[in-house]
Simulated assay, not measured.
Amino acid sequence: MTNTSLRRWSWIHKWSSLVCTTFMLLLCLTGLPLIFHHEIQELTSTAVPARHHPTGAQRASLDAVLATAQARHPGLFPMYVSREEDDDSFWYVSLAPRLEETEKFEVLAIDAYTAQVLPSPDFYSGFMYWMTRLHVDLFAGLPGMLFLGAMGLLLLAALVSGVVLYAPFMGKLPFGAVRRGRSARLRWLDLHNALGICTLAWLFVVGATGVVNTLAQPALNYWQEHHLKPWLSRHAGGRPPTAAERSPLDAAVRAAMATEPGMTLSYLAFPGVLAGTPMHYTIYMRGSSALTAKLYQPVLVNARSGAVEGSVAPPWYLKTLYLSQPLHFGDYAGMPLKLLWAVLDVLCIAVLGSGLYLWLRKPAMRPAAMAAARKAAA
């Protein structure tokens, strides 16, 4: 590789790294607790308290769960029934004063076995809420997400340029060598290079999936506007059934599961809400494995007859998005993978921190060298 090419790649590596390093450090620091978000929520009492039921205990019907919610809030309309991806021992039931509501909900957590109301978590405060918002959008909504996506692209540019620069360096020293007995800056440079090349594949995967995740809201909005809404509008006629006219929830869910074998219930929208149609339960199924748990597919079930009247598979770009989310946080293979992700995250913090240190401790160019550089540039 020519000196000109090396200088060009060095310029790309330096400036892409400098611009994104502070934000990547923030994402690594906030991402570390997010790897263990369920465990931390349980320890900090921000999750629904864990419940233990006897083996073989009978689950309560969804209709009993709904009856409990409506008894607690009579006069409100049921909007959604949902559950956590990794905990099916309780249900969330959302109710609102009108079917067109989009913001003001009463959310109850109800035991899936006893149909009793449980203490509901506070979704909008606490340590994990702050970590999540900082990691996802810097408390800036969609602009914040897109900004972090741009920083992720700079990270990928820094990784590629770092590999290009490391290749000639590898021909002079053994792999992973850290030269001792020299200056502290040289030791930090060797450590930065060694840790960087060791975490390269992981950091590239996490960075690339992070960029994809920042496009979640625009991609979902596009799908809803151009695919889901036109599909739902074909079933939009009619009057929402009253509570007495609605078919049982459990029968509707069983019908949806028979239509989409291998998938399980994620959440259910009642007739008349904005995410559904006036005449149907809109039942959102998801993959049953840890890796496919975010692959969603809506199924329409007639709320009066209980018959399935259609389903629509998500397009390729949403499948890519949904598959990238568990890969980003490493939460699809239990605690061993989470621990591996945490170790790699700490090593990544060391790479970013050492890079920042090398820039801050960059030796000043001597006057003679500055004059030579100006003469070469002239």
Rank of each mutant, 00 (worst) to 15 (best):
G56F: 02
N221V: 04
A269K: 01
L155N: 04
T292R: 08
L220M: 15
S311K: 13
A290Y: 05
E85G: 11
V93A: 00
W316H: 10
L189G: 00
F90I: 05
V273W: 02
L228R: 14
S161V: 04
L228A: 11
D63Y: 01
T132H: 11
A372Y: 06
L232W: 01
A275D: 15
M145T: 11
G262L: 06
G306L: 07
A243I: 10
Q224Y: 14
A194M: 07
T114P: 06
N213Y: 09
P218Q: 05
A252K: 00
A293W: 01
L327D: 03
H235D: 12
H235N: 02
L134G: 07
W130A: 14
R83A: 09
R72W: 08
A112I: 08
A373G: 10
Q224N: 15
R133L: 10
F77P: 04
L34Y: 01
R98V: 15
A251Y: 09
R8P: 03
G237V: 09
V205W: 09
E260N: 09
E225T: 12
L295E: 01
S183K: 15
H52A: 14
T21D: 02
I110K: 02
Y80S: 08
V163I: 13
T277A: 06
R304S: 03
A208K: 00
T320S: 14
Y357D: 04
L32S: 03
A251Q: 15
K319A: 15
M279G: 10
H235Q: 13
Q325T: 15
S311E: 08
L203I: 11
L165T: 05
D63R: 09
E103I: 09
A244R: 12
I35K: 03
C348A: 13
D345W: 00
F77C: 14
H280V: 06
A251I: 08
L340K: 09
S324I: 11
F23A: 00
S183G: 05
F105G: 02
A350H: 03
L62S: 03
A96T: 04
Y80G: 00
Y222T: 08
D137Y: 09
V351M: 04
A184N: 13
S233E: 15
V299L: 07
L220R: 08
D88S: 11
H38D: 12
D88F: 11
G238K: 04
L232E: 00
Y357V: 08
G334Q: 04
F329M: 11
